[in-house]
């Protein structure tokens, strides 16, 4: 091997990257050539100087990196848990809010319908389709006009049954019963409703009319009148008797 060839191989030689045969050839040349041997020594001296310049890991870097790795796995959990908790709370708030709000809002719409219907029934002199104080007349009248058979309670002269009427509340035909307490007209609306179930009496008041409504045996009951609330509640109590 010539010096020229040796110099070409020398970097790969000191780097241990030569195939065995070439490595041995360069080694043999270096043993006999002071010039090339000196060049190899210079390369090794440079390496040694560079290795002396190796920078040690700064104090605390390893700890910081490990903390960052922990943080990368753990806080994600914290965030997830927080997000989860937030989502759970949001679901509860929305659900409760919906449950609270929806029936109220539905009730509010119905209350509006009931009020409108009541006022209309008084104004238009169209209070009754079937004017009768006999529930045996009123009850059969609804047959074929409704998809349900409304109860038609009959009480004494204090709560006189005036008759019945077909009306339209909450987007469906309903039975409207008309009662009279002294000079006060009372409209009672009855229809089957999934939301009704069995629900205690609730009171509302608007435009001088008292409204009571409750649910019983899957029927929604709405009572409206300009009668005072105490008496109207008494009437509601009577209506709820089996």
């Amino acid at each position: 091997m010539t010096c020229e060839q040796s110099r070409i191989y020398l970097h790969a030689f000191v780097d241990g990257e030569l195939p065995v045969a070439d490595h041995l050839s360069v080694e043999a040349h270096l043993a006999g050539c002071a010039e090339c041997g000196a060049e190899r020594d210079r390369l090794l001296a440079l390496r040694s100087a560079l290795q002396d310049s190796y920078e040690d890991l700064p104090l605390g870097l390893e700890t910081r990196v490990r903390a960052a790795l922990q943080a990368q796995s753990k806080p994600r959990w914290a965030i997830d848990m927080r997000a989860l908790a937030f989502a759970a709370v949001a679901v509860i708030v929305i659900t409760v809010g919906w449950m609270e709000w929806t029936p109220r809002s539905a009730d509010a719409l119905i209350a509006r319908d009931v009020l409108d219907s009541h006022i209309r029934s008084l104004q238009a002199d169209h209070l009754m389709d079937v004017p009768s104080s006999d529930h045996h007349t009123v009850k059969p009248w609804f047959q074929g006009k409704l998809d349900f058979s409304p109860p038609v309670p009959q009480f004494g002269p204090d709560w006189k049954l005036d008759g019945g009427r077909l009306d339209y509340i909450d987007g469906r035909p309903v039975a409207a019963l008309v009662y009279q307490r002294r000079e006060h007209k009372i409209n009672v609306y009855i229809w089957p409703s999934q939301n009704a179930g069995t629900k205690a009496v609730q009171e509302t008041e608007s435009q001088g009319y008292n409204e009571l409504h409750w649910g019983r045996d899957g029927m929604a009951w709405w009572v409206i009148s300009d009668l005072n609330k105490t008496e109207l509640l008494e009437f509601a109590h009577l209506l709820q008797q089996p």
């Binding site: 920078e55 040690d56 890991l57 700064p58 870097l61 390893e62 790795l69 922990q70 796995s73 753990k74």
Partner: peptide, 22 residues
């Protein structure tokens, strides 16, 4: 699993942190 991943990574990579810094 997450904790396991950190441990696994550290077992392999920790000896080379100094090389990374250098």
């Amino acid at each position: 699993l997450k904790a396991g991943k950190v441990a696994q990574f550290e077992a392999l990579a920790l000896p080379h942190f100094k090389s990374a810094y250098n």
